[in-house]
Simulated scan of single mutants.
Amino acid sequence: MKSLSTLLGSSARRDLESGPDDGVVRALTEMVTHPEYPCLGARSVFRRDTASVVVLDEMEHADDLATLADALRTFAARTKDATNFVSLIAAFRSPVVTSEAQFEELLWGVLQTLHDGDDQPWTEGVSDDPAQPHFAFSHAGTAFFIVGLHPAASRIARRAPLPMLVFNLHAQFERLREEGGFDRMRTAIRTRDTRLQGGVNPMAEDHGDSSEARQYSGRAVDDDWKPPFEAREDDA
């Protein structure tokens, strides 16, 4: 079997840029179910077939982001009572991402556009200020924890052949914490990530200790970092 790094190489990206949507889904499934992939939550989603994947063209195109917004609304309504881990994954065929800073800007551009077009108030129980420890992104009345993946990621676990945004229900992590399984899963993931990368992700923090916004893009950021995002005044 190919190593995870080899699996995520440039040849995989070239194949997916022009391939059909089901090719993207197959490549994503192969990546997440690879024995070296550290995120147990993601592996659970694909093992249970509870991942919703939408393949789009552009991260900056209004029509593609409108499609994503519709998919998120449908996903939020369908999974509001889910007991298993579920995720919505948006994969973009373009642009070609060459740096972590570029991807970070694109990611927050997508989230700002989604928020600007959202007619629901910010989810109760989480902050709309990305500088606050209890921040979580909100769309369609649902709180999400975002995981960004792209070809130029320095962390192997965040590296993918195409730019992708994974929308995880924030409530599923809170439920896991209440049931006592969160610490165990977190420790296992960090152990697997260390085995893959040689060290723990320096941005890995627990919700409430620092803003999860710092983790969304996967880029290591300074203490004074602020994302290019602003919530509407009626949500503040």
Rank of each mutant, 00 (worst) to 15 (best):
F137V: 00
H139S: 12
G141F: 00
G141S: 08
T142M: 15
A143S: 12
F144Q: 02
F144H: 03
I146A: 03
G148K: 03
H150I: 07
H150A: 07
P151M: 01
P151W: 00
A153F: 00
A153Y: 05
S154Q: 14
R155V: 11
R155S: 11
I156E: 11
I156N: 08
A157K: 01
A160I: 03
A160F: 07
P161T: 04
P161M: 01
L162E: 10
M164D: 10
M164W: 10
L165V: 04
L165I: 10
V166P: 15
V166D: 15
F167R: 01
N168Y: 07
L169R: 13
Q172C: 06
Q172A: 07
F173L: 08
F173M: 01
F173W: 04
F173S: 05
R175M: 13
R175T: 15
L176N: 05
R177V: 06
R177P: 10
E178P: 15
G181I: 04
G181V: 08
G181H: 05
F182I: 06
D183G: 04
R184D: 10
R184Y: 09
M185F: 05
M185Q: 13
R186W: 08
R186G: 04
T187W: 09
A188W: 06
A188F: 09
I189D: 06
I189L: 01
R192H: 12
R192S: 12
T194G: 05
T194V: 12
R195Q: 15
L196P: 13
L196F: 05
Q197I: 08
Q197S: 13
G198E: 03
G199A: 14
G199L: 15
V200T: 11
N201Q: 05
P202H: 06
M203P: 12
A204R: 00
